[in-house]
Write a protein that binds this DNA or RNA. Sequence first.
DNA 1: TTTGAACATGAACGACTGTTCAAGGCATAA
DNA 2: TTATGCCTTGAACAGTCGTTCATGTTCAAA
Lengths: 197, 197
Amino acid sequence: MVNPAKFDRQQVVEQAMLLFWQKGFHATSMRHLQQAVDLRPGSLYATFGSKEGLFREALQQYAAHGERLLAQLHAQEGSALRALQLFFHQAIIEQGGRAPSRMCLLAKTVAELTDANAELLAEARCQLKRMEQAFLRLLQQAQADGELASGCLPEQLAPFLQMQMMGLRAYMQMSCDPATGERMLQQVFMPLRVVPS
Amino acid sequence: MVNPAKFDRQQVVEQAMLLFWQKGFHATSMRHLQQAVDLRPGSLYATFGSKEGLFREALQQYAAHGERLLAQLHAQEGSALRALQLFFHQAIIEQGGRAPSRMCLLAKTVAELTDANAELLAEARCQLKRMEQAFLRLLQQAQADGELASGCLPEQLAPFLQMQMMGLRAYMQMSCDPATGERMLQQVFMPLRVVPS
DNA sequence: TTTGAACATGAACGACTGTTCAAGGCATAA
DNA sequence: TTATGCCTTGAACAGTCGTTCATGTTCAAA
């Protein structure tokens, strides 16, 4: 390497991701991004090729962070079901005001983009499916551990959970009331509890 | 009236609404709109004032159509709970491919816009709340008619239903599988059924 | 037929979009 | 020290954005 770049690529993607998360793809201009990551257009285009290229990496980084968090919660809690519940609580209640948006960046992207950005749309859909598969593995683990009512079907519950995650965060974006969020969260996880016989 | 306009205002708003619904606020340009409604910029700006003004009317027309449909279903079915279920089925399964987007325009708007378009964002939130109140009235009616388990609390169920409506449509935008949609729809309405004693 | 107000038209505005590129700075290898 | 390649810089490009406005058209009332 003759003259290595002076910036940290991952840090740049992180900053860009936060801006995209806040404003969405179309409303985030390259000029905004250039200012946020303190790079001139030439460096950005040499590194990521295009606005789409930068956004793609932002999506991947966002999804990777989510998967990492879920695995970490599972590791530190031991219980798979409790990890899922904490993950939901974190996404919907705790990070509520601090994050750039109450909604999931992937869901926002699926909502905003069309076939005009087919590759980005496919990327977001794919990453959402990956999260759903992570849910599925945890549900199967929970059932094996007897945490989840044996009558439940994890293959049906995983999409249902993903759907409710998207719904909860979209609803919070609409109403912003943490009490309602907390209550709905309980309504989501109530039927998963094992009934004491 | 000296020289009445030659176009039908409601028809213009309808066309604009369909375009906004498909592409979102930012990705829909005034040039696109001008072409879609076959009006020159002067006429559009004389009528609606701005892109935001046109979008606001599109939001209102969309929401009004939803409320009208729900009331119509209630009238023709008699049953409040059945009206709700049909409304969900229509939004999620039937209109799936035909509509400009699988998602609700109001939810898409809440997902896309920020404080940079504070009034439009408030309008979309307000219309979503109106729909939730329509859900509430139907749930109360259903409970009074004995269709809804008496243990349910409509004040808690209405936001929960709204949340799941947003989630279902966002999920369909991601995965587009009608079988999964149908199954999740059943999962949503299952707990509302009265248990035969 | 003349008048005048409402409506229709489309060229044009300044600002902003994503992107390119020639020029200069820098750090390593010779 | 010189030479060689990568990196950085910021002006500039063509295109599009939302919006305006002078001009032309239309039509009921006078």
